[in-house]
C-alpha cells in the first residue's frame, strides 16, 4: 500500500479513475460477457502420444469455443504435479486438466493428498486399450499356449510394464493372476516395449497397440489379446483377454477433462458442449486412428460415475498387490 501512496499525484488520480471505471464495468461485464472470454489453459501431465492427443483436442476446441485453448505441460510426480496445480487453480473454467486413471494410481501410491473427488468431471474423451504382446519366435499364438508353456517351464515369466504401480502394471497383474502364472514385472518406461521384446529381455509386454503395429505387420511380434471386456477397433486385430482365458478382465485407460471442484455449472456445460463437438468430429476420429486412441464422448455425469467406479476397482487391485498406501 505504501508504494501506492508514494506515487505521484497524476498517477494516483489515474489509478482511482481506473478503479472507478472497473467498479462500474465489472458488474456489467459479468452480465454481458459469456464464458469463455479469455484463453483456456489445458494442463497435460505426460509426453508422448497422449500429449499429441491433447494438442489435437485443444486445437479442435479452439475452433468451436471462440477462444484459444492452449495446452501447458506440467509433468512430474506421475501426474501429481499437474493435478495439484489444477486442483488449486481458480475454479472459473479457465483451468482444465487432460486427466486419466493416473489420478487414482498416483493417489493410492500415496503421492497425491487428494483423490478424484477434489476435481469436477467435464467429459470423457476416449480410451486406450492396452494389448499383450509376445515375440513371434516364442511360438505363442494365443493366451492358452502362453499359459501352458509358462506353466510347463516352471520359470517365472518376465513381463514388461511402463512402471511399477502404473496402469499397465495393474492391468498385467490382473491378467496374470487370472491365468495363475508367476511373473516378474520389469519397469522400463513407455516407448521401449518393442525394443525390450525384440531384444529378448522380456517374454511379454502390456502396452498400447500402436507401438506394436509395425512389428506385427512385419511378423516379429504376436499380439495375444486386449484388456477390455468388449472388443474395440485397434491398430491390430485381436481378441479380448476375457474370451481368451482371463475371464472377467476389463481394464482400460480412460482419458477425459477435469476442472477444479467448484467450477460454475454454466462453464462446465459450455466446455462439455465444446468437447463433444471436438471429440465427435471426423478430424479427431482420424487422429485417434493414427495415434492408437479410441475416441468416445461421455457426458459429465456419466464420466463422473465411470471415474468413481474405476477408482474403486484400482484401489482394490492395488490392495491385492500390496502397493496401496491409503489402506
Amino acid at each position: 500500500m505504501s508504494s501506492i501512496r508514494s506515487t505521484a499525484t497524476p498517477l494516483r488520480l489515474f489509478g482511482s479513475a481506473a478503479a472507478a471505471a472497473l467498479l462500474i464495468a465489472v458488474p456489467l461485464g459479468t452480465a454481458r460477457a459469456e464464458f469463455p472470454d479469455k484463453t483456456i489453459e489445458m494442463t497435460t501431465l505426460f509426453g508422448g502420444p497422449a500429449q499429441t492427443t491433447s494438442q489435437v483436442l485443444a486445437d479442435l476446441m479452439s475452433k468451436n469455443i471462440g477462444q484459444p485453448v492452449i495446452t501447458v505441460s506440467r509433468p512430474g510426480g506421475g501426474g501429481a504435479i499437474g493435478y495439484t496445480y489444477v486442483q488449486s487453480a481458480p475454479a472459473d473454467g479457465y483451468s482444465i486438466v487432460f486427466s486419466s486413471n493416473s489420478i487414482s494410481t498416483v493417489y493410492y501410491q500415496g503421492n497425491l493428498p487428494f483423490n478424484y473427488t477434489a476435481l469436477a468431471p467435464i467429459a470423457h474423451i476416449g480410451m486406450e486399450v492396452p494389448v499383450l504382446a509376445v515375440r513371434a519366435d516364442s511360438g505363442w499364438k494365443d493366451l492358452k499356449s502362453m499359459q501352458a508353456a509358462a506353466k510347463a517351464s516352471g520359470k517365472k515369466l518376465r513381463v514388461g510394464v511402463s512402471g511399477l504401480g502404473t496402469f499397465t502394471h495393474l492391468a498385467s497383474a490382473a491378467l496374470f493372476n487370472r491365468l495363475g502364472l508367476q511373473v516378474v514385472y520389469i519397469p522400463y518406461g513407455e516407448g521401449r516395449a518393442p525394443a525390450e521384446l525384440l531384444g529378448g529381455r522380456v517374454d511379454a509386454a502390456l502396452q498400447w497397440s500402436s507401438q506394436f503395429a509395425p512389428h506385427v505387420k512385419a511378423g516379429t511380434i504376436n499380439v495375444l489379446c486386449m484388456t477390455s471386456k468388449d472388443k474395440v477397433d485397434l491398430a491390430i486385430e485381436t481378441v479380448t483377454c476375457d474370451s481368451a482365458g482371463a475371464t472377467g478382465l476389463d481394464l482400460t485407460i480412460w482419458r477425459g477433462i477435469h476442472a477444479p471442484k467448484d467450477t460454475p455449472p454454466a462453464a462446465i456445460a459450455r466446455l462439455e458442449a465444446s468437447i463433444k463437438q471436438a471429440v465427435e468430429s471426423a478430424e479427431f476420429k482420424k487422429a485417434g486412428e493414427n495415434l492408437g486412441f479410441t475416441p468416445l464422448f461421455k457426458s459429465a455425469k456419466d464420466f463422473g460415475k465411470l471415474v468413481a467406479d474405476n477408482d474403486k476397482e484400482i484401489g482394490e487391485l492395488m490392495t491385492e498387490l500390496g502397493i496401496n498406501k491409503k489402506k
Binding site: T52, G191, P214, H215, N290, G292
Partner: peptide, 30 residues
Amino acid sequence: PLIGLGIPGDPATAIILGGLLIHGIQPGPL
C-alpha cells in the same frame, strides 16, 4: 531406431514420432 523400429530414444524424437503418426506415417520396418 525411430525410423527403423518406431522406437523413440528421447523426448525430442518422441514428439517427432507423434508428428509422423498424426500424418498416418507409422515408422518401422514396413
